[in-house]
């Protein structure tokens, strides 16, 4: 493990049990990610992509093996790792602005009101939704909801952005558009590492067999 590895997994295993049978989802996954890398994880559905992302995000604990973030063992979710959820997971009772504001207020507690407001504005502008600030998620299209979800994750100003199939629920045209947009955001934003299952990029991890 070199020092500039922002994330490193070693022999991470995870299995789920329903009492009768045990399903091994992750079997000794090892991976080193350097700063600035953009990694995609490919796999069939049920291969364990989401489980891996959840382990890195700290939502699930690996049965064995280590998840090191900047050399420190991962202990639950942290504000250095932003996560874009597969199913958008926006708060339906909050407007676009309030959805992003919730992340800003939770993560950047030390910033002043003005700084927080500026940050919210900037992230919403970034995903091109400044015209829809006051709308509720129900009034947005699928692609727009996904962009709000991206804006919310970016508003945490994370060092690692984890995206769990951010484009899977979209049609081909919207997907291509949003993919370009994510590329653009990646260049504009100083996020050190991108993780995105199901996106073709410089480095791909292809699981062997049916599981990771």
């Amino acid at each position: 493990m070199t020092k500039n590895n922002i994330l490193s997994l070693s022999n991470v295993s995870k299995s789920f049990s329903d009492g009768k049978s045990v399903t091994h989802v992750l079997d000794r996954v090892s991976l080193d990610v350097e700063e600035g890398e953009f990694i995609a994880i490919l796999g069939f559905s049920g291969a364990g992509k989401t489980t891996l992302i959840n382990c890195i995000a700290g939502l699930e604990e690996a049965d064995s093996g280590d998840v090191l973030v900047k050399g420190v063992a991962c202990d639950g979710p942290g504000k250095d790792r932003g996560l874009v959820f597969q199913s958008y997971s926006l708060f339906p009772w909050l407007s676009v602005e309030a959805n992003v504001a919730m992340a800003v207020e939770a993560v950047h507690k030390d910033k002043s009101r003005e700084e927080q407001a500026a940050l919210i504005r900037q992230k919403i502008d970034l995903v091109g939704l400044s015209h829809a600030m006051d709308r509720k998620p129900a009034q947005l299209s699928g692609g727009m909801r996904q962009r709000v979800s991206v804006a919310r994750a970016l508003a945490m100003e994370p060092e690692i952005l984890l995206m769990d199939e951010p484009l899977s629920a979209l049609d081909a045209l919207t997907r291509a558009k949003l993919q370009d947009e994510i590329d653009r955001i990646r260049e504009e934003e100083n996020v050190r590492s991108f993780w995105s299952p199901m996106m073709l990029t410089r480095r791909c991890c292809w699981p062997t067999g049916s599981r990771l």
Partner: peptide, 8 residues
């Protein structure tokens, strides 16, 4: 999970 990621 969103709540957990945001550490509310």
């Amino acid at each position: 999970n969103v709540g957990r990621v945001l550490r509310l």
